[in-house]
Write a protein that binds this DNA or RNA. Structure first.
Length: 494
RNA sequence: CGGGGCGUGGCUCAGCCUGGUAGAGCGCUCGGUUCGGGACCGAGAGGUCGGAGGUUCGAAUCCUCUCGCCCCGACCA
């Protein structure tokens, strides 16, 4: 906390790590690549989780839970899926430890598993095998299931929230009678994600389809919501996959249709992870630290009491408690900072750094006038302050302010995204942009997968998506020079 | 797995080159003065210098081995 946060312009990734540490979102753990999510960070995740879960329920999905361990043989059943995940699987081979020759614990050779288990990197396989039991008839469809779970992917390079060896997420898995229904579901959940990102997390995202290179292992089509971070890098913040009949064939998910004929199901899967926390940090944060959208902020309003002597303290605290009760009564997540070992000034900075959207200041002068001072996180300094708000109106005033901050953050992020989305017509121009400010580069695209690889190699930029509903007319591909109407969004990505 | 760097109180690091009683800042504890934008004074607690071996009268410092972490690259929600 005493440490100053590194300015974003100086070293963006250090800024990111500083914010996570100082705002007490997470810290590193004894296990390489895994993090401890601290209560404040977890509360943020819980709000993200609740916002998504509510939407899943509203679209007819139910929650269930499938095992952490998956028989290794399951991985093998879908060829592309193996390719995608085999190289980053944690494998469980023993079920018992014993003391070795030198007294240290070793896996008991007698306790070797006949078939090793893998720790799920994702659950298409085990859910597929379960679905094959659940689905008999067209009457069983559609099957709309979600699970909240942890998964493990043995990544080589990790970053808190953005890429950790173990992470938390939800994975929706659905089975449908027809391709049409499954595709519809895939796109519906993409919309749900976009709705959450925009309205709850205040992150403007671009919906779109992934290129074959970026597609989920085993999917027919992968759709994505792409967000732009403060340093001009893109972040895939949620994905939705149409899996065709690939997993239905691999796991025998079949139903009898009205004509008593066996048909393979068309399945989907879709996920949002703790990466969304990283997205919120980087989409909104400034050099002072975190800026949290009120809808997902663990604390929406913090009350900072100000006093000098004990008599003042008693009066101020009494007033502050009343204000707190009024805010809590209005359904606002409020905290009264009662610490007496740090100064008010310190608290201002502390809660700003931790991203609390609205601050309520209460000092002796406010007690006297039965009022409060309000400050908003998205507008710095005096500009963002409102003086002399009557105590009787504080709940309404704060509620309104929270809506304004929510809208303000979305507006700022949208303006940033839009002013950092540029068009180019040549590869030279493209490289200049990518090496400069970054951002999204919107282009006409008619290249091949190999072209994509080359561009990635040369510039580290990838196709983030083919944006939904893009209609830029016919144009010339910036890379191949061929005529095309296909539009791609490129960017450097996490 | 290649290339580079670092392991010294809770945290960030100095000390090492040139061996000689383990330091600073922050944090923590206690007391006092403070408190409307990161307060100050005083008194304290706290370290097998990553580990093992060696050289030496003497090792945080020199040598050998070893373990761990970080950064860069190949893979990725």
């Amino acid at each position: 906390m005493a440490e100053k946060i590194t300015p974003r312009s100086e070293d963006y990734s250090r800024w990111y790590l500083d914010v996570i540490r100082d705002a007490q979102l997470a810290e590193s753990s004894p296990v390489r690549g895994c993090m401890v999510i601290r209560p404040y960070g977890f509360a943020l995740w819980e709000n993200i989780r609740d916002g998504l879960d509510r939407r899943f329920k509203a679209t007819g999905h139910v929650n269930a839970y499938f095992p952490l361990f998956i028989p290794m043989s399951f991985m093998q059943r879908e060829a592309e899926h193996v390719d995608g995940f085999a190289k980053e699987c944690a494998v469980v081979t023993h079920h018992r430890l014993i003391a070795g020759p030198d007294g240290a614990l070793v896996p008991d050779p007698e306790a070797r598993l006949e078939e090793p288990l893998i720790v799920r990197p994702t659950s298409e396989t085990i859910i597929g095998s379960t679905f094959s039991n659940w689905v008999q008839s067209y009457r069983d469809l559609p099957l709309l299931v979600n699970q909240w779970a942890n998964v493990v992917r043995w990544e080589l390079r990790t970053r808190p929230f953005l890429r950790t060896t173990e992470f938390l997420w939800q994975e929706g898995h659905t089975a449908h009678a027809t391709e049409e229904e499954a595709v519809e579901e895939t796109l519906r959940m993409l919309d749900v994600y976009a709705d959450f990102a925009i309205n709850d997390a205040a992150i403007p995202v671009v919906k779109g389809r992934k290129s074959a290179r970026e597609r989920f292992a085993g999917a027919v089509e992968t759709y994505t919501i792409e967000a732009l971070m403060g340093n001009g890098w893109a972040l895939q913040s949620g994905t939705s996959h149409y899996l065709g009949t690939n997993f239905a064939r691999a796991f025998d998910i079949q139903y009898l249709d009205r004509n008593n004929e066996k048909q393979y199901c068309h399945t989907t899967s879709w996920g949002v992870s703790t990466r969304m926390v990283g997205a919120a940090i980087m989409a909104h944060g400034d050099d002072q630290g975190l800026r949290l959208p009120p809808v997902i902020a663990p604390i929406q309003a913090v009350i900072v009491p100000i006093w000098r002597k004990d008599p003042e303290r008693v009066a101020v605290m009494e007033h502050a408690e009343r204000v707190k009760a009024a805010l809590a009564g209005a359904g606002i997540r409020v905290k009264l900072d009662v610490r007496d070992d740090v100064s008010p000034g310190y608290k201002f900075n502390d809660w700003e750094m931790r991203g609390v959207p609205v601050r309520v200041e209460i000092g002796p002068r406010d007690v006297e006038s039965d009022a409060v001072v309000l400050g908003r996180r998205d507008v710095p300094g005096k500009e963002g302050k409102q003086f002399g708000i009557p105590a009787g109106q504080v709940a309404d005033a704060v509620s309104e302010l929270l809506s304004e901050v929510q809208a303000g953050l979305l507006r700022q992020a949208t303006e940033f995204r839009d002013s950092n989305t540029r068009r180019v017509s040549s590869y030279d121009e493209f490289r200049q942009l990518i090496d400069g400010d970054g951002g999204f580069v919107r282009v006409h695209w008619d290249g091949t997968g190999e072209d994509e690889d080359t561009i990635k190699e040369e510039t580290k930029a990838t196709i983030r998506c083919f944006p939904d509903g893009a209609d830029d007319g016919e144009g010339v591909c910036f890379y191949t020079g061929r005529k095309t109407s296909q539009v791609a969004l490129f960017g450097r990505a996490y």
